[in-house]
Nucleic acid binder design. Structure first.
Length: 117
DNA sequence: GTGTTGACGCCTA
DNA sequence: ATAGGCGCCAACA
């Protein structure tokens, strides 16, 4: 096994980021900072955006990753689409922001992994 | 190895 | 609420 990770969006951090995003359930959202933190790099919120843009995989709810404060943030293609997707999941989108963001903010299962298969 | 860019975060005016 | 600036990390030329 290689002692060094792969490059080009194949880093361990990138894999962790995708893993976290995949855990975000419908109707909930997490911030780039939260994903970065859960991925092991609490200061890499910006890098999270970079990774999602590069290592984007089909099937992952990238639209559920928003900026701090409940701001919808950016999105590949069109931020408006991101807001529309969130609104379609029942989130109270107000312009470029989510109302009562704290109540819709997602948190990973603690103690045990929710992944049961 | 260096410099620039970017789906960010927080502070200050 | 709006605008400007600095710091952080990873990908890319």
């Amino acid at each position: 096994m290689s002692t060094k990770p792969s490059r080009s969006a194949g880093t361990a951090f990138a894999a962790r980021v995708l893993r976290v995003v995949r855990q975000i359930p419908p109707g909930r959202v997490a911030t780039y900072g939260d994903v970065a933190r859960l991925a092991g790099r609490p200061r890499a919120a910006r890098a999270v955006g970079t990774i999602m843009r590069i290592a984007s995989m089909p099937g992952l709810p990238y639209h559920r990753v928003v900026a701090a404060g409940g701001l919808v943030g950016g999105y590949g293609g069109s931020p408006a689409l991101k807001a529309a997707l969130l609104a379609a999941e029942g989130l109270p989108i107000k312009g470029r922001r989510i109302r009562r963001f704290a109540e819709h903010r997602w948190a990973p299962a603690r103690g045990r992994r929710s992944g049961q298969g």
